[in-house]
């Protein structure tokens, strides 16, 4: 369980993370999604106490990470694959980490086998490929058999086989009741690995949702229609909540009606249809839409910095005005994100 409450990190004038609150629960894989520079790594470092939050706090399994007596049993971490001394062998690297908690050599051998590094365990880590480095990072995260796993871009650099392996591993670990929290900038990867999502952009929370909601909500169910009577069909279909876009002389893109509804309405009006195709927005498109909003939002905030505004970085105005509901950073953005399915139906 990871609970972030109003986390904030500033580097001088620059706000890397702003008023970030979210929860990662046990038993599910929670994806931490955002473009590069969104503050994902900074947030992960704050969870581990490597960076001190400028404001707010984050609890791991109900406690501050610093206050835990056996950190490796609480949290397994892979912040970056290259957090390894290049001159040391994989086995010695893991052994050195294990010693700090009195974890034995047998467990070290176990995790080496688990990630499939047996044959290269005695080789210097400096010569490892990116994928091998990732596996070593995952091995070190699993050493303490932790209740919570925090992984920064775990699939980065893995080959297809390795990616499939880690997806399975992470789902198994979550199924055992562990909290699995992993970051990525790839929506498509998240959709395959995570069930819950914490979406950030420019250091701010955009949405705390589920993959299922994003898929449902980000697909406005546009229906592609081809008909010789485009203008007639337009007037038949028009109404509140319906958007019709002519893509050529005889084709329309319709949102607000299902394909079934369009077919029935066309038959009642006696109009011929040549083509009637439901279209869905891709996950990457959905994610791009999300983060584009975040970028625009952040740009507005930064340009209005000279004028007093709730989003300025002035410390006196930030506290009382940026009250964020637990699920939603900005209602309008979440509306754009989840559409008709609504944003309050989280599990």
């Amino acid at each position: 369980m990871i609970e972030a409450r109003g986390l904030e990190k500033r580097y001088g004038d620059k706000v890397a993370v702003h008023d970030l609150s979210f929860t990662a629960r046990p038993g599910v894989v929670t994806g931490f999604l955002g473009p590069n520079g969104a503050g994902k790594s900074t947030t992960m470092r704050m969870i581990l106490g490597l960076d001190r939050p400028s404001r707010g706090e984050v609890l791991v399994n109900g406690r501050r990470y610093r206050d835990t007596t056996a950190p490796m049993q609480e949290v397994g971490v892979m912040l970056e694959a290259r957090a390894i001394h290049t001159g040391r062998s994989a086995a010695k690297h893991l052994l050195a980490l294990a010693h700090t908690h009195g974890i034995g050599r047998r467990r070290v051998d176990e995790v080496i086998d688990l990630v499939g590094l047996r044959e290269v365990a005695r080789r210097r880590a400096g010569g490892f490929s990116l994928g091998m480095g990732q596996r070593l990072g995952i091995a070190s995260a699993l050493l303490g058999d932790p209740a919570t796993l925090i992984l920064d871009e775990p699939v980065n650099g893995l080959d297809p086989d390795g990616i499939r392996w880690i997806r399975g591993l992470l789902r198994d670990l979550a199924a055992e009741g562990r909290t699995v929290f992993l970051s990525s900038h790839l929506m498509s990867e998240m959709a395959l690995t995570a069930t819950h999502l914490v979406v950030v952009g420019r250091g701010r929370l955009i949405a705390e949702t589920t993959v299922a909601e994003v898929i449902a909500g980000a697909s406005p169910a546009a229906v592609h229609v081809r008909t010789p009577d485009a203008s007639a069909l337009r007037s038949v279909l028009g109404g509140v909540g319906v958007t019709i876009t002519a893509t050529s002389a005889d084709t329309l893109d319709v949102t607000g009606h299902t394909s079934e509804q369009i077919g029935i309405l066309a038959r009642h009006a006696g109009l011929a249809l040549y083509e009637l195709t439901p279209r869905q927005v891709s996950l990457e498109d959905a994610f791009m839409a999300l983060t584009r909003d975040a970028v625009e939002y952040a740009t507005t905030a930064s340009t209005s910095r000279t004028a007093p505004s709730p989003t300025t970085t002035s410390p006196t105005t930030v506290v009382p005005t940026t009250v964020v509901p637990t699920t939603v950073a900005d209602p309008e953005q979440t509306l754009a994100l989840t559409g008709a399915t609504g944003s309050e139906s989280r599990a």
């Binding site: 581990l48 490597l50 950190p71 912040l79 970056e80 957090a83 908690h101």
Partner: peptide, 8 residues
């Protein structure tokens, strides 16, 4: 970061 991450 690995070192200090496990000895906070």
């Amino acid at each position: 970061r690995a070192t200090l991450g496990i000895v906070p």
